[in-house]
Design a protein around this nucleic acid. Structure first.
Length: 263
DNA sequence: ATGGTAGCCCTGCTA
């Protein structure tokens, strides 16, 4: 099974590029984030023509997550659901489905903006709720992939200049600890397994020519349970898809990740 | 040096 994840930054604006990328790479399952669509606005027909069904959870305008699959799409659930303390999901940040026996979860973690703001606190709360959701509704001994835009660079080698961003959002200790707790539940970084080198960024700011200068961060991830990690045979970060010229239309500010598993 | 760009719609907000 070939599994991919990509923050497409508007599936409406990016549709042609996403469809051409899918036709070229032929993933069996594609997690997408920042579709910026309502569920009813999803271009299901265009995906169906390529052989994919789509599960989507979004409110429109902001956020929005999806899973496209050509190997089945069962037991679809959207959102984290309310927590006992009254905490509620702000919407369009998680969708899960079972594809060819693998529980696939597509997430878009809140950006957090600046450390110390209410948005940063909400990001940490969301990650904490996600960890609780994993513990309560998933099994680390099952075949599960948690994919998407985590908005966290786990280590200093995941950013272009650790000193330049020290303590800032995406790299702050509290964010890294929150993501480490996800791994501690029973998840392995499927990309790092094959690529220990520094870099391998998945996001570059549109501004100031940052992509050209390779000023980026590795904030998108494919985290898999150990039974699924045992099936992983290869992983790739597709930098070509971030280039302006490779596919029609403007690129997303994120590059896709592709992980292959043996059947 | 608080810039720079892209996408959304409430031409300001979010990233």
């Amino acid at each position: 099974m070939r599994l991919a994840t990509w923050n497409v930054n508007s599936l409406k604006a990016r549709l042609d590029r996403v469809l051409q990328w899918i036709a070229a790479v032929e993933p069996d399952v594609v997690c997408m984030q920042e579709t910026k669509l309502t569920d009813s606005a999803v271009p299901a027909l265009a995906f169906r023509e390529l052989g994919y069904e789509v599960a989507h959870h979004g409110l429109g305008q902001w956020n929005g997550v999806a899973i496209a699959s050509r190997v089945g799409l069962e037991a679809v659930t959207g959102g984290l659901g309310p927590a006992p303390d009254g905490w509620t999901d702000d919407g369009g940040r998680l969708v899960a489905a079972t594809c060819a026996g693998v529980r696939v979860v597509s997430i878009y973690v809140p950006n957090g903006r600046e450390v110390g703001t209410e948005f940063y606190a909400a990001k940490l709360a969301w990650l904490d709720r996600l960890e609780r959701w994993l513990r309560e509704s998933c099994d680390p001994q099952s075949q599960l992939a948690l994919c998407g835009d985590f908005n966290v660079a786990p280590e200093d080698r995941d950013v272009w200049d650790a000193a330049a961003v020290h303590g800032a959002t995406h790299v702050s200790p509290a964010e890294r600890e929150a993501v480490a707790r996800l791994r501690a539940w029973g998840l392995v970084d499927a990309v790092r397994r094959f690529h220990p080198e520094a870099g391998l960024y998945t996001w570059w700011d549109y501004r100031a020519g940052n992509f050209h200068k390779n000023i980026g961060m590795r904030i998108d991830h494919v985290y898999v349970t150990k039974p699924l990690a045992a099936r992983a045979v290869a992983a790739e970060r597709d930098r070509e898809a971030r280039k302006p010229s490779t596919y029609p239309g403007a690129p997303s500010d994120h590059a896709p990740l592709v992980v292959d598993f043996r059947d």
